[in-house]
């Protein structure tokens, strides 16, 4: 069975890779199998983890046996019924006449997520980042353990450059994404510096992604040459 599984995996891997040559029946077959299995897989995951695992098991908790052989019972979580009602309302979309009711659960989902995201992003991605950007550019005072007195410690050239890049990049990037003013004059010039920084960031990001994609390819090459054919020692 293990041999069969390895051959199937190799067959499908090569089928998908064959797209690099051109679209062909082997690719189409691999694609169809992938799409079908993944859709089925997600259905199964959602059913067992959400509907059965979370909802059903939450309302009617299974009795569990601990290592000492005792029965461990849990209290039913009836709050899950609220979710179930909202979920059922969502399905009313299938009945055109009362389909509009399905907007309520949708509003609930969007409202909850927005509330959570608002604080998460505002706190972690805005406030904390502004705080981290407030920094001295040339040096700072530190406690000298030898004399127990504060002494000025100048940054190295590389540190000053690094801090400048951070501060200027953050500021000009914000200017670029400021939509209430036309990009003209000094403001436009600053925005241009901002897009310059953004593009450099994208370049770095591109490089990292190439690394990531190559890693995936290496993983597959290792599978084909080592796990499948055993050509690599």
């Amino acid at each position: 069975m293990e041999h069969f599984a390895v051959w199937v995996a190799a067959f499908l891997t090569l089928g998908i890779v064959s797209f690099l040559y051109k679209d062909n029946p082997w690719y189409k077959l691999s694609e169809a199998i992938f799409v079908g299995i993944s859709a089925g897989y997600w259905f199964v995951v959602l059913f067992w983890d959400n509907i059965y695992g979370k909802f059903w098991n939450g309302i009617f908790p299974e009795e569990l046996i601990d290592s000492a052989g005792n029965v461990v019972t849990r209290e039913p979580d009836y709050w899950l019924l609220v979710g179930a009602v909202l979920g059922t309302l969502m399905l009313l979309r299938l009945i055109p006449k009362i389909g509009w009711i399905s907007r309520w659960p949708l509003a609930f989902i969007i409202g909850c997520t927005s509330g959570l995201y608002l604080i998460n992003y505002f706190s972690s991605n805005m406030m904390r980042q502004v705080e981290a950007t407030i920094m001295p550019l040339v040096g700072h005072w530190v406690l000298d353990p030898a004399t127990s007195q504060n002494a000025f410690s100048a940054f190295s050239g590389a540190d000053i450059f690094s801090n400048l890049v951070l501060v200027i990049g953050t500021f000009t990037g914000l200017v670029y994404f400021y939509f209430s003013k036309e990009h003209r004059g000094a403001f436009g010039g600053t925005a241009k510096v901002g897009i310059f920084f953004i593009m450099i960031t994208f370049g770095a990001s591109f490089g990292y992604t190439v690394m990531s994609r190559m890693s995936l390819l290496i993983g597959r090459a290792d599978f084909l040459l080592f796990d499948w054919l055993g050509l690599v020692r």
Partner: peptide
């Protein structure tokens, strides 16, 4: 499909 690469394929 919900599966990322299945969708892409």
């Amino acid at each position: 499909t919900d599966e990322q690469f299945g969708y892409v394929a």
